[in-house]
Every structure is written in C-alpha cells, then in structure tokens.
Design a protein around this nucleic acid. Structure first.
Lengths: 335, 335
DNA sequence: CTGAAAGCGCTTACAG
DNA sequence: CTGAAAGCGCTTACAG
C-alpha cells in the first residue's frame, strides 16, 4: 500500500542501496543520481519505514521516557525540558507512565526494547533498585532522575531535596518562627524522605529539644487540605507550616483561609517545587524553586553524552554528577 | 548482545516459530511446550524486539499524537485523556509537537510512518488542509481534533467554540452588562476564530447597533496583560471583558488588579477553557468549561473504532460526530 | 560511484 | 502441534 524504497528505486532506475545512500546523505553518490533519487522520493512522497530502518541500522533515534505519571505541572515542566533537548538533537520521545505501579513500571521498561536508543527513568520509590535490575537490560543506556538507586553504576541526576528543605527551614527560623509544622509526602517516596530529613535535622540543630511536628500527606492537594484542617483544630497552632510540596501547601492554604485564618498574618505557609500555580495563588506561595525543566534537559544530555562515550558509562564513579540546588523564593505567604 | 527469539528457541529446544506462537498466545502449541518456552523466556529475561515485531506483523500497537505544543495545562489535560484510553487498550503513545511550525508539523507527520498504527492530530491553523493532504499518507488512519479541515472525509472531533462563546455572552448580557470587550486569540487559529464569531454574532443579535470592541491577543498571559492595560487606559472602560481563553483572561485580571480596579465590583472578567488555574486565582474566574481530557479520550476511541471498521472510515459523512459542548462556570470574577 | 546480497529479529502462511 | 522458509523494508559490508 504505502510506497517503499523499492518503488523509489524502480522509478529512479537505481538499486535500493543507492536510494538508501542518497536519502541518508552518504557522500558516495553521484550528484546527478542523488538529485534524481531525491526528486523521485519527494514526488512519490516516500517516507522511510521506521521499524525497518531501525531494525537494520540498530538505531531508533528515539529516547524512552518512563515516569511515575504524566499528569500535572511537575511532569509537564519535566517534559518541556526533555522535549527541548530532544528537539535540538532531532530525537523522538516515547513517553510512558506507570501510574505509581511497580509492575507497570517493569512492563514499560521491557516494552522499550527495540524502540529506543536510551532511557530516561524516574523511579522515586524507595528501594526499587531490585525491580529495576530485573527489568533494565544492561545493554540499554539509562539515566535515572530523582531515584533512590544506590551506586549501582547507573548515571543519576538528583535534586538536592535535603539541602532545599534545610534552606527553607533557615528562612522560617530566621524570620523568628519557632513552632513549625511539616506536612510530609508519601513515605515510600525518595524526594519526600529527603525533604523530611532536612526538616528534622534543621530543627534538631537549630532548636535543640524542640519536638518535630509532622503531619501525613501524599503530595496531592487533598492531603494538604486535611493537614490544614488538622492544624486549625489543634489546641495551639503552629507559627508556620512547611509542606513537602506545593500542591499540599496550596491545599493547606485553602483550608486555613476557609477556616478564617489570614496568611501570612496569622500563620505562614511554605511549599517546595515552585510550580507555576505558586505565583498565582493569593497570597502567593513561598517555596523552594526546583528547575524541573532543567532537570529533564540535563538528564537527557547526560544520557546522550554517556551513549557517545560508552566507556564513561561503564566505569568510574558517577556520583559526581552535581545535584540541582533548589532556590528559595520568598513570597507573600511568609512575608 | 540482547537476547533474541533465537536464544529462547535454542534453550527451549524448539523452533523460533514455536517460540513466537507460544509467546503470542496462539492456541496451537502443546501445553508442555508452551510452558517450557515461557519459562525459558522468563529466565533469559527475553523481551521481543519491537521494531522486528512490527515490521513483520505490520502492527505497532502505538498511536501517534501530533500536537501544536506539549506545554501547559491545556495539553497536559489532553494527554491525560488520551493516555487513559490508551492504557485501557494497552496502546503506546508516540507524542510529537511541532511548536506551531507548519514545516515541523509535516516532518512529524511523515516521521510517523512505520511507527504507529494511527494518528491523533491537532492542527488548529486555519487553512492547513493542503499541507495535511501532502504529509498524511492515505493509508494512515487519523482523527483530527479541533482542526479547520473541511469535509475531506477524515474523522474529526470538535469543541463547540462558537456556541460556547455565545453562551458566555448570554451570561454577561443577561447580567445586564452592555459594554463588553473581547480579547481575541491568534488570527490564524480556528478555535479563536470561532469564539470571536460567537462574540460578534451574540452582540449583533442581542444588542443591534452596538459596536464590537475587540483587542488583539495570542492566547498567552502576556497578551491578556497588554489588553488589560489598554482597557484600563481607555477613555471609558467596559463593564466586562471576555477573553478568548483563560490564560489571557488571567493576564487581563492581573493587569486590572494591579492598576487598582476591583474585580468584579468595578469590572467583570470571563475566560474560556476552564484550566485548573481558573478555580484558584483570586477572584476565581468565570469561564466556559471544555472537557479537554474528554476530547482527547473520545478522539482516540473514534480512531480505534474507525480502524476496526475501515469501511466506515472511507465512506459516509463524518460530520455527524457531535461536538463537545462547553459548559458555563460562573465564578467570582463576574458574580 | 554502484549493485547484489546478507542480515536485522520477528511473524505467518505452507507443509507435514 | 511443529518446523523450514519466505518475507516485512530497510542498511551496510563486500565486490567491482
């Protein structure tokens, strides 16, 4: 049905080998022949069959991106950063999300074979390395993002969540707040754990003896809302609430506002991530800015560099890839 | 390097044909053999090479999604809806955005050959049908979303932008507002044109003789902000502003708030789309809710149905696919 | 500079 | 129920 390289070859009166060379810009094709082939291909609206091409050339020009989810501002930003670099390098993206389901993650990873030249993977579950080991072919170049996979030699890019949480605590403590509650993220999430650890350590160091005040959450707005309700109902309220991500901070903000508290006069709220919404809510949200797009872009560059220089991929320490440092954005919610 | 079907065949002491049948769940394989093959495949962590499989089977189990852009809430929602249906049907998604660039669009479309079984395409440029005709293989099943491609026989799913704009005008006029300014979208954008047409017609019918008051815009926040500035500086201000999408409505809202006007007391603002942000800003934004995820999900189902029944794909009128009707969401910005 | 041929890793009639 | 073989549409040594 569709036109193949054979059709072009016939029309142009050359062999398929020559068509292939001409189309791929190889040097060893006579100028007149090249032009004839290109003309015919164009006229026939020939487009190479991708599967065939990648089967024989062993390259797909496609990068697989396997994420916990596709939805929401965080992933949208991440994809933007990856997409930008992919476009620069003329690479396609095969995106797959596993919806927080480890089994699906395995399936997604295995399904990438023969479809992609390399893999970008975000697997924020604590202790997921065994499953990764199972489903990741050693032959497949991969870069991990924000994943708790101990030094097993795979390149990995991280956000300094621990340092970011400490920086936020410095800001809140520096402003004189003493009773600081923390809304935690999912227990099995690596980012969430690091942020919690930053909260605990900062408190222990700067306010020795102070009891940590930790509320459960799972990174969505609803859990932030519940935490806000709980804090409002508490016998004595905190001076400030630090939520492990912005969505929860917003939920908390809405709950407290609805309950009649004024932010920041009565209570201060801070988040983590700096999603676009953070700037737009009222009052605008103090948060730690993570350049999510930059994380994605850098991860892809790292993958490409490693693929270009496989030696570097196998040996040597990769822990030295510097983590992304979040930046404090002071806004109205703590001003 | 990677393990192939041959390795499995050798280990299991059968032919590759049998391995293929066993793995694909064909009936005609002895139970004992099937189990042996499955066991070996599992043990070897065999994963079929996708390009090879689709080259010979002529199916990719992948759907191409070609969009003007990937970034932002609109496309994030759209992808969510598509992704959900894709998962139900165990289909992969190959996503490509052409960044509003018609040439890139052509490239993206052509690059889909041999990679996908069908295509979901959003091409909101007015008069783009010639280019589509050029780059779309007739053999490739496709469903268009919100595209200005006149009855050329391709299934197409639309949002009733015209009706939606009229409904919003009914709301504003019904509330007694008479001087209603409109912030238009890009001139070459089909959705934008339909919304503008709704504004014009509603005004002409319900307020004969009233002069349309139209400001330019291009669907982003900045252009809404400029429109807001212009309206504030106008010798006499409108009662209400209707922006062709939410991002511009928000820009306008911020500009007018910064200038010191109170919304809705001094001036009312309405948008179109109901992006998640619309609920969160202060005051919350009146808008026309478009179920964007539903649009994506329905488009994919339509594509799958058409592919299952190719006869329906070629003949008969396809205009009868009902458009999605936006829903009026009255919020604080016009209350 | 060009072509014939092998091969990429599968699937699928065709025989048996 | 099973295998040998052709074929999917390309690319790429190998000859010339």
């Amino acid at each position: 049905m569709a036109v193949t390289i054979k059709d072009v070859a016939r029309q142009a009166n050359v062999s398929v080998a020559t068509v292939s060379r001409a189309l791929n810009g190889h040097e060893n094709v006579a100028k007149a022949v090249r032009e004839r082939v290109l003309h015919v291909a164009n006229q026939l609206r020939y487009s190479p069959h991708h599967a065939a091409r990648s089967l024989s050339s062993r390259r797909t020009h496609t990068i697989g991106v396997v994420l916990p989810d596709l939805y929401g501002e965080f992933f949208s930003e991440l994809m933007r950063g990856i997409d930008q670099v992919a476009r620069e390098r003329r690479l396609h993206l095969l995106v797959s999300s596993y919806h927080g389901n480890p089994e699906e993650q395995g399936e997604a990873l295995r399904a990438m074979r023969g479809r992609v030249d390399g893999l970008l993977l975000m697997s924020p579950f604590v202790g997921a390395s065994a499953s990764l080991e199972q489903n990741l072919s050693p032959a497949m170049p991969v870069v991990l993002m924000n994943s708790d996979v101990p030094g097993d030699g795979k390149p990995s890019l991280r956000v300094d969540n621990y340092g970011g949480a400490r920086a936020m605590m410095d800001h809140l403590l520096g402003a004189g707040h003493r009773r600081i509650a923390f809304v935690a993220g999912p227990e099995d999430n690596f980012d969430a754990r690091e942020r919690l650890r930053g909260y605990r350590d900062a408190l222990a160091e700067r306010l020795p003896g102070a009891e940590p005040w930790i509320l459960p959450g799972d990174f969505d707005e609803a859990s932030g809302h519940r935490a806000g309700g709980a804090l409002f109902a508490a016998p004595s309220r905190p001076d400030a609430v630090f939520a492990a991500n912005d969505m929860m901070a917003l939920g908390c903000l809405f709950a407290l506002s609805q309950a009649g508290l004024r932010v920041p006069q009565d209570i201060r709220i801070a988040g983590f991530d700096d999603i676009p919404l953070a700037r737009y809510v009222h009052p605008s949200l103090t948060t730690m800015r993570v350049d999510i797009a930059e994380l994605g872009g850098r991860a892809l560059r790292l993958l490409l560099d490693a693929a270009a220089d496989p030696a570097a991929g196998e040996a040597g320490p990769r822990e030295d890839v510097a983590p992304l440092v979040p930046q404090l954005m002071v806004r109205a919610s703590t001003a």
